[in-house]
Every structure is written in C-alpha cells, then in structure tokens.
Design a protein around this nucleic acid. Structure first.
Lengths: 333, 333
DNA sequence: CTGAAAGCGCTTACAG
DNA sequence: CTGAAAGCGCTTACAG
C-alpha cells in the first residue's frame, strides 16, 4: 500500500488516522487514491497491538435469551456502535464459573472495558482490576469500589408500582421477587414494603415469594401465591419475565387478571404490550442505561462512578387500567 | 516472564501452547511456576498478530432484541465457547447499511469467520470474500455460492404445521408470513400451499397476509385477517413473534383462540410455553443450528456447504390440543 | 531440547 | 511535511 502510493507507511497511518502529524494535501490525495485502488483495509489487530487500544468491549450477561437482557444488549450494541466500539458477547448461563472464564477471556483479548450483569453478588473482578480495565456493572448494582454502576432506583421503582396498585383500590397486595441473595430483588421487595407501610398497611409477608428472575420462576411463585386460602387481590412482580409466568399460572388457575388479581411488574420490554392481558410495567429506559454505561467506560475517572437512570410507569391492562389504544397499533380506519 | 523463569520467550510459548516444539519436563515446571507466580496472561492481540488466528467470530443479526434471534445467539455463544471461540455481537437493526458496516468492521478486526442472518436477500459478502473468510448464513438461506448455509427445510416445517391444523378439522386456513422478498417467508408460504393442495383444498389467497417478522407485523396482519367478512377458522403463522401479535389482535377482536381460530407457528422459543393461550409451534433446534454453523465455519471445505436441521411439532393449546401438563411445570403436590 | 532472531502489520516519537 | 526505524508482545522456523 505504502509503495503503491509512493510514501512511507508512516504517512499512510497519518492520513488514515488524521494524525498525529499533518500531511500535505497532495500527498493525502495520493494515499487516498491508492487506498481506493488497492482496496486496502488496515489490520485491526496490528493496529491494536501498536496503539494499545482495541476499541472492543466485553459484555457479560446471565442469559442473552432472556428478553430483558436481550433488550439491554440491543441498546448497548447500538450505543457502542456510535462510538466505534464493538462488544464481545458473553453469556454466563447464570453460572459463576462460566462468568469468570468470560471475564478472563475478555481481559486476555485486551478489551478496553467490561460491562457486566453479574449472576449474583459474588462478582470477582480481579482479572479486570489487574489489567486496569474500567468495569461497569449493570442492573444488579454491587458494592464494589471504583467500579461503575448503572441502574435504576429499584426501591423507588417498586414503590411506584405498588402505589399504582393501591390507587386501584387494592389492599391485599402480594409480592413476587427474585432470589433472596440478589440485591436487586431485595431492593424491589423493600420498595413494595415501603409503599404499603406509607399507605398504613402492613406488608403481608405470607404473601411474598422468591423465585428465579425468569418466566418459570414467576410461574411457580404465581401458582403458590394464588393457591393460598385467602389469595391477594394484587401482586407486585419484580420482573417482567416473572410476571409472564404469573399470568400463565393465573390463567391455569382460572384467576382473572386484573379482575381478581391486579398485576404490575418492573422492566418493560416490548413483549409487555402484546401479552394477554397486556402488562402494566415500570419501564426501564434501555437507551439511557446503555448511554450511561458506555459513558462510564470511556470516562472511568468521572466525578461519579454511579448513574441512576429514570423509569416510567406504563399503565396497561393487567393493573386494571383500560387496555391502551396505541395510535401506532390502532389502524386509523 | 521469560526472564522470571530463566528461559527464552520461545520456550514460554512452547509450554503455553503445547508446541510446536517439545520442552523438557523440568523446564516446563519452571515456566509454569513463573506463570503462576507472576500471574502472567499472554496478550491475545500479540498472539493473534503473530499466529494469524484471532479465535474470534462475528455475529450479525437483524435484531438481538427479537427473542428468536436472542435464542439463536444464546445457542451460538454456548457452542462457540466449547471451541474456545468468542463472538462479536452485531445488531444490524434490520438495516442493510448497518449490516454492511458490521461486516466490514468484523473483517477489519480479523475475525476467523462470520455467522450472519441477513436483513433481506441483498447480502453483500464481498469484504469477507476478499479476506478469504468462511461465512455461514443462518435461517434465511440465500443462494450464494461457497457460503455455508444452515437452517431448516422451511417448506416442510410449514407443511407440517398446516397439516396439524387440517388434522384438527380446520378447512379455511389462512396464512400470515414475512415480507414477500424474504426467501424464508416465501418458502413457508409454499409449505402452507403444499399442505392444503395435498389435502385437496385450494389455498385461499385472499386469506394470506405479508408483514414484518415481528410482533407488531403479526398484530397488523391478524387485525386485517380476522376482520374479513368470512374469517378463517385457522391460521398458519410463519414466525412465533408474529403469532404473539396475532394472539393479541384476536383477543382485542373478541376472537377465541383456538375455539374460533386455531393457530400454529414456526420457531419455538420458551415464550411459546407461557403465552395465553400457549402457542403450538414447529420448533427449531437451536443447539443443532448452532453446532452446524460452527462446524461449517471451522471446516469450510466440507463436502456439503449446507446443513438442513431438524424441527419438531410441539402441540400446545393454540391449535386446539389440550394445554400440555408439563411435568416440570406441574407441582407434584 | 533451547536460544537468538525475524516477522506479524501497524503507530509513533525522532530526525531531517 | 516526510522517511527510516524502533517497538507493541507474541510465534515460529532456523541453528545449535
């Protein structure tokens, strides 16, 4: 390539990278023409080795097939692409050992940073720390020092969801949340308690269920919760996937949602608009989560290592609100 | 590191890679000890530059937030990890331009191969071809020469689904499939026609709808199809996501599934078990698709460049079969 | 069995 | 403004 343009490789580099040295317009032309003519593409690996930056990030998720994480991945990929970054996809399959392998693998591949949703509170970041890599933990905020954290105020989100159930006149409000050892699950449970207490009600601890943050977990919890002698008249469900499982359990048990039991969940992927009944959710802003995550990776020295993102209550049918007539969905016949 | 062990870098390399030269047991010990002591991890980038292999693949999907593609990504990541490979995540957002950028980006990063689900039939693989990279096209099989292709027999899968509807005594069977220019959508439509014709029925072309392969597409198609003067008594839906949209449209229109209209779809993610009613699907075997894809990447010179995978009819409620009593789901109380 | 050295394809001070 | 050269951290023939 350099010879094709009759210049040194240094100049080719200067032209293609716009620096760090200036290049005469005439020379630049010649290089660009030669690039065009030869179809030359710089080798990203050599570039990475020489420059020290791979422009690559590692993404570690408990399960990419979980629609919530898939939505997160979608938003992250989109945001990363705006910055010329690309993600390695890591699916830890909810396993600590696999998660650790992924982190080591990504560090070994010299990523510029790591974005992680940990499988539980035991997150060993030592390989990243040794390499001096910026790390951002998503969704499940952990107490690690000098690690970026991006998420919503889980307690507030859960309280908002529970208050909405209260506004619908429900008083016997149950709880389905995630595993006890997950801070996110605990925080959402706390929000439920807080809203009830603020309303002068005693949280019915016999109406609480812990299960995995997936459909099957919600299904099991739903069967159990709806089968008690005096069932709840509403349930706050800590994740959308669990809520879908609970919807199914209710259907099988002949329990009508929302007539018998009103439901509000947290998360908010597109699927919530299409379930039967449609699911009222406190929706996380995936774009915002992604933007903050990339920001913290690129500016690890930022004043604050923590970004608390916004959320929105999106009323649909499962809480007792009318089925939304989405103008985009409704044919304007 | 080499100095820590008192050997040359060559020997360190031989030990860590088990070759290509033998190393004395005693020397090996010393190297391994030094690795342990210093916490040395080889630089993957330097290794890649020197060896020519990055052990990295590129994955290009139309939308990772679509549960079908997410399930595919999950299976691919799992299979890749067994081979010491890791995927770059590329989300083309259903856009040709973005798709092309991703392919160029991955080729520039010197991936060892590319796995792609194209957004449409216009798939420009020239950057990969120039680099001599093996490419596997998934799901939407295209007519490219010397490109690997992995998928199911779409016509047969659609015919199987339609036959099941016929077995339930349905005769007025509609069709919802994907965009006309997608071969996958066309093949599944052909299977529907074939099954009807084989049963001595004339495919009702006024009962066919084309829409995007997502929930909203299925919703629109469902509204339109269920709103005709003489609605169908069954619908074959070419994708699970569209089927969820149609389920919702039916619910809004007061049409009972399966009593008024029976539904069978193709794809089969876990979500089909939990919808209300549960969705009968012709399920693709994601593990098999993933295994064949990685195989074709690693052995591009294989006798056959095409792998046709198996599928299974999984009867659930939407076709009129009884709601499955899943032993894993059913508490054995 | 092991070491010295070239080479992978770039980037980046250093001279000029 | 441009070229010659070192260097990024490995792998791999080549000698010995």
């Amino acid at each position: 390539m350099a010879r094709a343009a009759g210049v040194s490789t240094a100049v080719v580099s200067y032209v293609l990278n716009d620096g760090p040295r200036p290049v005469a317009a005439e020379t630049r032309r010649r290089v660009l023409d030669a690039v065009e003519a030869t179809g030359y593409r710089p080798d990203g690996i050599a570039r990475a080795l020489a420059s020290g930056a791979t422009h690559t990030l590692g993404l570690v998720l408990p399960d990419i097939a979980n629609p919530f994480f898939a939505a997160l991945a979608h938003a992250l990929e989109d945001e990363a692409s705006r910055h010329g970054l690309v993600f390695f996809l890591g699916d830890s399959a909810e396993q600590r050992a696999r998660q650790h392998e992924l982190i080591e693998s990504f560090v070994g591949r010299r990523v510029d940073g790591l974005v992680i949703v940990g499988v539980d509170e035991e997150l060993d970041l030592s390989p990243a720390r040794r390499a001096g890599l910026p790390v951002v933990v998503l969704d499940r905020i952990l107490g690690e020092p000098d690690v970026g954290a991006v998420g919503i105020d889980n307690r507030a989100a859960a309280a908002l969801a529970t208050e909405h159930l209260l506004h619908h006149g429900r008083r016997r409000i149950g709880l389905v949340t995630g595993p006890e050892d997950l801070p996110t699950a605990a925080a959402r449970a706390d929000g439920w308690r807080e809203a009830l207490t603020a309303a002068g009600l005693a949280p019915a601890e016999d109406l609480t269920r812990h299960s995995r943050f997936d459909r099957h977990g919600g299904y099991r919890a739903g069967r159990s919760l709806l089968g008690v002698k005096t069932p709840p008249d509403a349930v706050f469900v800590a994740s959308e996937q669990q809520a879908f499982g609970l919807l199914r359990a209710a259907h099988e048990a002949g329990v009508s949602i929302p007539d018998d039991v009103a439901v509000v969940a947290v998360d908010g992927t597109e699927a919530a608009e299409y379930s039967v009944p449609s699911l009222t959710t406190v929706t996380q802003r995936f774009d915002e989560l992604a933007a903050r995550a990339i920001e913290l990776i690129q500016h690890p020295a930022a004043e604050s290592r923590t970004a608390v993102c916004n959320f929105d209550l999106v009323p649909r049918r499962s809480c007792g609100c009318p089925e939304p007539r989405d103008p985009e969905r409704e044919p304007t016949s």
